[in-house]
């Protein structure tokens, strides 16, 4: 009797814990949906802060170019080397150019650029807005008749959504160029042949799916940066936590969305 009632107590405590985690999860999802809805509404209703949108675009698009470019060129080069040595086992070296371009445009361009930008931009957004939150600057905006969603969140979402596809397009080109460099200089491909093979099997869908991913990732990165910064609490430590949460959650969401969008485009 006593044993079974003690067991009951343990079971109830475990179930209560699980329930609490589940409820917290639902509450967070609800909060995030509300935040996203409000943010989107403020993206499309005036007033618009064009200067701020422009500044964010420069920050996301232009200043991320070096790190994304480096990532892309080395990825393209590695892809060429790896696929050459791998495919030569069944005499399919001719497929190198195709493998490089398909992997870059469909998958590695958007995902690697997304991961890099998440580290750079997601962190900086969360830290900046988080600091503004804990020093009352967000509230000060409100008292100056300026909606923080319009002033802080909307420009970042618009910039993330529009600049990531451009950034990924550049990354695709640089990655293919990296593959080309290795293919021609190290693996002995004829330059003209390599280029022909690059475009021979490339379809519009490959590029479009990659750019769709890029737009989704850009949105997710900005949204996570803004959401965690906006809801940060309690001084420097709170801002630190917000920054970690922004980066980790955007990395995870990028991987999840990557699967979903791939499934949408290529599953049959």
């Amino acid at each position: 009797m006593t044993v079974s009632s003690r067991e009951d107590g343990v079971i109830i405590r475990v179930l209560a814990g699980v329930g609490r985690i589940f409820l917290n999860f639902l509450a967070t999802v609800g909060k995030l949906s509300m935040f996203t809805g409000r943010a989107l509404m403020h993206c499309v209703t005036p007033p618009f802060y064009f200067r701020l949108v422009l500044r964010q675009m420069v920050d996301i698009g232009y200043y991320s170019l070096p790190v994304v470019g480096m990532t892309a060129i080395f990825t393209g080069m590695v892809l060429a080397l790896q696929s050459y040595s791998g495919f030569s086992r069944f005499s399919a070296e001719g497929a190198v150019a195709t493998v490089v371009v398909l992997s870059m445009t469909r998958e590695l361009g958007p995902v690697l650029a997304g991961l890099m930008v998440a580290g750079r931009i997601g962190a900086s957004m969360a830290a900046e807005i988080g600091t503004m939150r804990v020093t009352d600057q967000v509230d000060a905006l409100t008292t100056l008749s300026t909606n923080p969603f319009k002033y802080l969140v909307a420009p970042r979402l618009i910039a993330g959504l529009t600049m990531m596809p451009l950034l990924v397009l550049v990354a695709d080109i640089i990655g293919v160029f990296g593959g080309f460099l290795i293919g021609v200089n190290k693996l002995g491909f004829n330059p003209a042949n390599y280029l022909t093979q690059t475009f021979e099997f490339l379809e519009v869908k490959d590029v479009v799916s990659g750019l769709t991913k890029a737009a989704a990732f850009g949105f997710v990165i900005s949204l996570m940066g803004c959401y965690h910064g906006y809801n940060s609490r309690g001084g420097a430590q709170g801002v630190g936590t917000a920054t970690i949460n922004a980066v980790v959650s955007s990395l995870i969401l990028i991987l999840i969305f990557n699967y979903i969008i791939t499934e949408m485009f290529f599953a049959r």
């Binding site: 503004m132 020093t135 000060a140 008292t143 008749s145």
Partner: peptide, 14 residues
């Protein structure tokens, strides 16, 4: 909010 002005305790300058 246009009717209000607020001096925050910590300043809250941008």
């Amino acid at each position: 909010m246009g009717k209000f002005g607020m001096l925050f305790q910590g300043g809250a300058l941008f």
